[in-house]
Design a protein around this nucleic acid. Structure first.
Lengths: 188, 188
DNA sequence: TGGGTCATGTAACCTGTTACATGATTAG
DNA sequence: CTAATCATGTAACAGGTTACATGACCCA
């Protein structure tokens, strides 16, 4: 969890379908939450069983039927009680495969490690660009268009940007240090 | 995954027990990997079934028997092929409950949000201190005591520190912005 | 004619968490 | 006397991923 509360949160103002919700997660909210379509559908189903959502089928002529979900009072209550808990976890989940690999790379060739870090750096830069491009994209899909919502959305975007920047700076610094070690060794 | 490769990596130089390995993960390597003891035992079992590890039982008089695992050639091969893949994922796993909550907090009272952010800030500071304290702790437990290993370990520690710092800066900036919005509104 | 978008789902699988069970030794 | 540490495991569950199935419509 909590994909569950993410879905309730997105549905709290507007009804929507599994397809739309999963697009929203994977396109607009993608750097703080992702979800597989299959999981979204399953979770919506469960939420309906629990009485937090109700659905109706909307027939279309040119595309498949849509199952449109809307939130119930119980659903709103569930969402709000989840939000009320005010010791929000910072969630540094401490499970970073990149660092695990880096740590073990201690007994690899320094050249190789530096090479890999440089490649990684390239990929981080790319992601950073995508993130900057994504900025301002939320307005069109979003469940809310108010200034307040736009502000909060752009602040979450900023969070992502800062964390990525920190990684970039770490990589640059690390490359510098490892290159230093390399020269030192070859110089002796 | 990959707890699996983490275990193989730690066992690649020295044999060890489930108990020791799980302590290592949760004490020394804890800000880039954590693992439940139960999971470590299960995974070691699987790795033995797969032929990547072998174990022997060591009888002790004062404490329970220890099951000591050592890596096989197949295990080393498995580890190395995992390390060889050189497109190391940066792994910004994009699943951040804190940000999900923050995003939805757009329609909460600003005072409340600022309050929560300040509390969160306190917790982040605490964690930062723990991280700084943990620095230099690896040498005693670690599977390797070489300079190279210490350097790499301290670089991973630095990574964690930088990411936490970035979060702290984001919180400070965000509090400032939200306080600005608040004054603006009350001023009109 | 081939690939992308719309649209919904099921089933198997993998990973990780929580709770439980056992039992001796040792430090405060 | 109590709590922690050493030491190993099982079972149930929760959460998320991958693969698969279906089928029409639209654009190049």
């Amino acid at each position: 969890m909590s994909l569950r509360h993410g879905l309730l949160g997105l549905l709290r103002h507007h009804e929507s379908t599994g397809y739309e919700l999963s697009k929203l997660f994977n396109e607009s909210l993608n750097y703080f939450w992702k979800a597989q379509m299959s999981q979204v559908y399953q979770e919506l189903n469960k939420l309906e069983d629990l009485g937090f959502l109700v659905s109706r089928s909307v027939v279309q002529d040119k595309s498949p039927n849509r199952r449109v979900y809307s939130i119930t009072d119980a659903g709103i209550e569930e969402f709000q009680s989840w939000m009320r808990a005010d010791d929000w976890d910072i969630g540094a989940s401490a499970r970073n495969i990149f660092l695990l690999r880096f740590f073990f790379a201690a007994d690899r060739n320094l050249d190789e490690v530096i090479e890999i870090l440089k490649k990684t750096r390239g990929r981080i830069c790319q992601r950073l660009e995508e993130m900057i491009y994504a900025k301002g994209h939320y307005g069109s899909h979003g469940p809310e268009g108010s200034d307040r919502h736009r502000l909060f959305w752009s602040l979450t975007a900023d969070f992502g940007r800062r964390v990525v920047m920190a990684r970039l700076e770490w990589i640059d610094e690390t490359i510098k240090i490892l290159e230093g070690v390399e020269n030192e060794n070859s110089g002796i």
